Computed example of a mutant assay.
Amino acid sequence: MSTITEHRAVLPGGLTLPYAETGQPGGTPVVLVHGYADSWWTFEPVLRHLPASVHAYAPTQRGHGDADKPQGGYLPEDFADDLAAFLDAAGIERAVLVGGSSGGIAARILAGRAPHRVAGLVLLGVPAALAGKPGVLEIWDRVNKLDDPVDPAFAEEFNRGLTAEPVPPGFLRTVTEESLKAPARVWRETMRGLLDTDLRATLYGILVPTLVIWGDRDRIVPRSDQQTIVDAIFGAELLVYEGVGHVPYWERPEWVARDLTEFVGRFG
């Protein structure tokens, strides 16, 4: 089991992002990018299962968790800009990017526009697009009505709905507490940005090796979305986890760690 240390990265302009780090320096760096209303803690189970040979970083994005919470900057391209700035701040020239859920949008934007910074791309339950999906629109209707403080019952219900099977109660409590650190405006503006952006356009122009991982009991992202991604990214591979929901890194962190380690091993 790997040891996790916590640090803080200061980006240009002073924006500060906390991040977790594990593994030994020297190998191909891996940067894990969390999704909506989340924080680096979402990847804690995966980080614990990674071998020391994988040098992993997991930053918390602006507005989320214990990161700084500026008034604006919550479009997908803003998160991609922050991701590029994080690589600079952490001294990472080139990394494998691992995006969980909507975190994969920022990861693939950066992979498309700066392939020299991205050795490979792993997408975990990442949508091809969100606009028009009935379940997403139902969530948006509730998010759009949120006030501060965000209702803990809503945050817990939201997180419970991401999995096909229950996760350990302590972990669910942790990710729910992390979700509650995001103010209502961050919940709203981040989702508004995902709905208003042409997410399909962010799939094109990606030339780096890509692994797509999807749980076949995902109630948010259908398999057709994964096929859209695989068809759009040349050479992309699809790996299906049976019996798993939207966040495979919560439900089967050991599988994700295994497959991520194998993928990273291709880069020597």
Rank of each mutant, 00 (worst) to 15 (best):
R219W: 01
G170S: 14
V230D: 12
G265D: 03
L83G: 10
T5I: 01
G243V: 02
L137E: 15
V143D: 11
Y74K: 10
T42R: 01
P51S: 00
P168G: 11
D218Y: 00
L195C: 07
D88H: 03
A182F: 06
H7G: 03
W40A: 14
D196V: 06
P45Q: 02
A84H: 04
D148E: 11
W214C: 09
D196Y: 02
V186A: 10
R94N: 13
E138M: 15
A111I: 05
G170W: 13
A95Q: 07
Q226R: 02
V30C: 07
G65P: 13
S179N: 09
Y204L: 09
L124E: 07
F263D: 12
G268D: 15
G99C: 09
G215H: 01
A106Q: 14
D78S: 08
V264K: 02
L75E: 15
G235P: 06
L97D: 11
D231K: 02
E251F: 02
V96Q: 15
H246E: 08
V150S: 14
G205L: 02
P45E: 02
R192G: 14
L97E: 09
I109E: 15
F79D: 15
A67I: 10
G235H: 00
L260R: 02
E21M: 11
A164S: 14
P127D: 00
G268M: 07
H49I: 00
H7S: 05
A119V: 06
F234C: 07
V143Q: 09
G23M: 01
D231T: 05
A257I: 03
R94I: 12
D198E: 10
G268C: 05
A107I: 09
E6V: 01
G65W: 00
Q24P: 11
G72E: 12
S224W: 03
H7D: 05
D141C: 06
R113H: 09
V118C: 10
Y204G: 15
V175K: 03
D147L: 10
E6C: 05
V186Y: 03
V256T: 04
R62T: 10
G65Y: 00
D66A: 11
I220E: 10
V122W: 05
Q226M: 08
F158M: 15
D141T: 12
I4T: 04
Y249C: 11
E165S: 14
G112L: 08
W140H: 10
A84L: 14
L207T: 14
D141N: 12
K69H: 14
V264F: 01
R266M: 05
N144Q: 15
V167W: 01
G120R: 08
V230R: 03
R113P: 15
V256R: 02
L11K: 02
Q61K: 09
P166E: 08
P76T: 08
V122M: 11
D151A: 13
P18Q: 00
G135I: 01
L238C: 11
L97T: 06
I105T: 14
I213C: 10
G245D: 06
G26P: 06
A37Y: 03
I109N: 08
V143S: 09
W214E: 06
D147E: 15
